[in-house]
Design a protein around this nucleic acid. Structure first.
Lengths: 250, 250
DNA sequence: GAAACACCTTGATACAGATCAAATAAGATG
DNA sequence: CATCTTATTTGATCTGTATCAAGGTGTTTC
């Protein structure tokens, strides 16, 4: 079951110093809080496919993704599964003030997380308000993403769903690395067909068919199994059903 | 187009004192912040069907629902609509740090909101951290609700969706009023078939058919158009697809 | 390099829910 | 009370996606 898409990068100092840092450097964070965070942080690595925690299990830490991709999923009694969160590097997982995880947290690729023990983290939050403020901002962003995702689940066709997902990943990828070249985007699709189907509320077969359809029409080019090239991003965007510019989920 | 389900109640002091108050009284909030909030708050009323703000329009306030129900919706270019938020009394709308509304905000019933001008509210947030903390809590709750909703949209059958929605409203209603009697629940369904279909990612006709089906099977009883009676809540719960106890959205 | 495995693609068919079209019911209005 | 309007129900049919079933492709293992 191990299947690495990205190699695990050596953990450098730039990572977990401040959970708030990952997305936006915050100047006030430099001094003592940093030291306090240093004391309560630790790293955990997972292989692709491994489960970080099961829904309902005790989760006594909060964490942010350093490298790789994690997913949050819900499962119904009869096994139907829906992904409800996709965590890319710098994203945050875990809820202060809750003992157990509400979702299955799974490593979609090889994964490194920077974890903070919950209790001390909560204490720190009380003492340094701007951590809470930053967390509020991030949570509001996630809520927006969730709502965009709801539109996708409730109203988009299979074809639109696939196009949307590819655009979302491409965008996130492009904003991390700087390979946004001359209109052509090239990146790694880090999800299996099954993971895609769980994200989109489809079956794996429908995902496969629709990806093939987009490929046959030249909207995307697949190289190897996971590498994707988008020759013309705007043309693909038109297939998402979103109006021109909007639609950035997680 | 006006169609009142609940009569507007006279606005009393207990309402908007502190936006944080509505859901959980917070002791620290009593003193000066309360006065500051008093100065920047104002009330707005809407008739059922009226739009509070359109997506993209300027929204220079945040607000919480006093009476009635408001909805947040997204619309695609071709008119497909998906509800992404359902605001009941005490729920909060608007995002600090954003100029425009990301969603259409609509009054599903006659509606009274307690509004706070955004700028002063943000200032207040900076000065009194626990308002931000409370807001973080509420946002995290909403995120959980959104994720439960995503499971509904992505994986549940039409029948399960309807049963879920009725249970959600019944629960919210029961927790507000105290008419949770001897297993029989009676309450007002404050949404049109169309609003329900926008909530559930279905068409209005499918909603109607499934409601009829549940009625014919005796799982619910309808009195008049909007009044609903659930003779046996647990039996209806079994139709939601959720495991025994879970599944409280918005 | 053969076997085993995991993942992906493609085909045939079934069915849940959408769509199109009336008919009915329930308030609102004069 | 009769009429108008809007919301709801119900029917007939169509279609997009699920389901069931092989077959293919690339990777790891020995």
């Amino acid at each position: 079951m191990p299947r690495a898409t990205q190699k695990i990068q050596p953990i450098s100092q730039e990572c977990g110093d401040c959970p708030i840092r990952h997305r936006a450097v915050c100047a006030r964070c430099e001094s003592e809080e940093l030291n306090l965070l240093e004391q309560i942080k630790f790293y955990r690595s997972f292989e692709a496919g491994q489960t970080v925690v099961w829904a309902g299990d005790k989760m006594d830490f909060v964490a942010s993704v350093v490298t790789g991709i994690a997913t949050l999923s819900q499962t119904m009694e009869d096994g139907r599964r829906q992904m409800v969160g996709l965590l890319l590097p710098s994203d945050f997982a875990g809820r202060p003030g809750r003992e157990t995880s509400a979702y299955d947290v799974t490593a979609a690729t090889d994964l490194v997380m920077c974890c903070f023990r919950k209790k001390p983290f909560e204490d720190l939050m009380l003492r340094t308000p701007h951590i809470g403020q930053r967390l509020l901002e991030m949570t509001l962003d996630e809520l927006d993403a969730a709502r965009e995702w709801m539109l996708l689940l409730g109203r988009k066709t299979a074809r639109e769903k696939i196009a949307s997902l590819i655009c979302i990943i491409a965008r996130r990828d492009a904003s991390l690395q700087l390979n946004a070249s001359d209109g052509e985007l090239r990146f790694d699709l880090p999800l299996t067909r099954e993971a895609m189907s769980e994200y989109l509320g489809l079956t794996l077969e429908t995902v496969s068919r629709q990806v093939s359809a987009l490929r046959k029409e030249g909207l995307i080019v697949t190289e190897g199994k996971r590498q994707i090239v988008i020759p013309d991003f705007d043309r693909l965007l038109e297939e998402t059903g979103d109006d021109s510019d909007g639609g950035f989920l997680v």
